[in-house]
Design a protein around this nucleic acid. Structure first.
Length: 270
DNA sequence: AAAACTACCTGAGTGC
DNA sequence: TGCACTCAGGTAGTTT
């Protein structure tokens, strides 16, 4: 589920409930996540949360003692609920704040993660080799051009590579390539610089637009309040196989690249 | 170095 | 109803 806009939406919703507040208790109901939830996660108990940031699709909550890292995987959500709300199946972790509110990490597929980082999070193994943020200044046509140079891999796979640019998942990769008019199968090294310029703009635009609408709910994404995102109705190609292109009316095509579905318009994207 | 593929896991949907 | 099968928003790790 969650790509960058969904994580950003969740983080923004959660922040007002945690910034400047102390954590009372962490309850781990099922430590089987992508990596076992470490016992050190309890280090956060009694700490005041000073910061909350997103890096790629990771959420980082900083305290004086260390940093809580959360990832929503494919099926996760993080909700803010009264602490006495009955637990649901797959509510794996609950973080109770001093005011009685609780953050619930719910993740049926358990591809998500909850880790405790001591020291500088930027140096953590999961974060240190990540590429630039797509909405930040460091992601430019120059960086993308350099990353694509000489590569035979399809352009879609390259923009989904977190070493090149973070946060571009399967939905927004297809959408950005449509907006830029680029065939997702094009070898990355063969896409001209002007077209990469369009692609950089398209990636920024589609992510920003989705954040504005609270993200995309395909099946089960909900934000911190349990509400879906509304960007799905704006999708131009993703999950629209056989339906008419919104520009030229040619049927949208679905192919598989790197074991993942890709959607594109064969007429608009060359 | 880069590309291809595997693995992790549950639930929804489809076809028989 | 039930079984077998496919597919799903991510990404670290291994193999080629």
């Amino acid at each position: 589920m969650p790509e960058l806009p969904e994580v950003e939406t969740t983080l923004r919703g959660v922040l007002p409930h945690v910034i400047g507040k102390k954590v009372r208790e962490v309850m781990v109901r099922d430590k089987r996540m992508r990596w076992p939830v470490p016992d050190e996660i309890h280090e956060i108990e009694g700490c005041r949360i000073e910061s909350g940031e997103r890096r790629a699709k990771y959420m980082l909550f900083g305290t004086a003692k260390g940093t809580l890292l959360l990832h929503l995987g494919m099926s996760g959500n993080l909700r803010v609920l009264p602490a006495d709300t009955p637990f649901k199946k797959h509510d794996h972790m609950a973080i109770t704040m001093e005011d009685g509110r609780q953050l619930r990490l719910h993740d049926p597929r358990r591809f998500g993660a909850a880790l405790w980082i001591e020291g500088d999070p930027a140096e953590h193994a999961l974060l240190k080799d990540l590429g630039p943020e797509p909405l930040g200044e460091e992601f430019t046509v120059e960086t993308l051009h350099a990353a694509c140079a000489g590569k035979t891999a399809a352009i879609k796979q390259v923009i989904m590579d977190a070493h090149v640019v973070v946060g571009v998942g399967n939905i927004y990769a297809s959408e950005a390539l449509f907006m830029a008019g680029i065939d997702p199968r094009q070898p990355a090294g063969k896409v001209s610089k002007p077209r990469l310029t369009k692609l950089v703009q398209a990636i920024r635009k589609v992510l920003a637009a989705s954040i504005k609408m609270g993200g995309t709910t395909l099946r089960d994404f909900v934000n911190e309040s349990g509400e879906p995102g509304y960007f799905k109705q704006t999708l131009r190609v993703y999950d629209r196989e056989g339906e008419p292109c919104r520009v030229c009316e040619a049927p949208v095509k679905r192919i598989v690249q790197g074991q993942r579905a890709t959607y594109f318009c064969p007429k608009c994207q060359k």
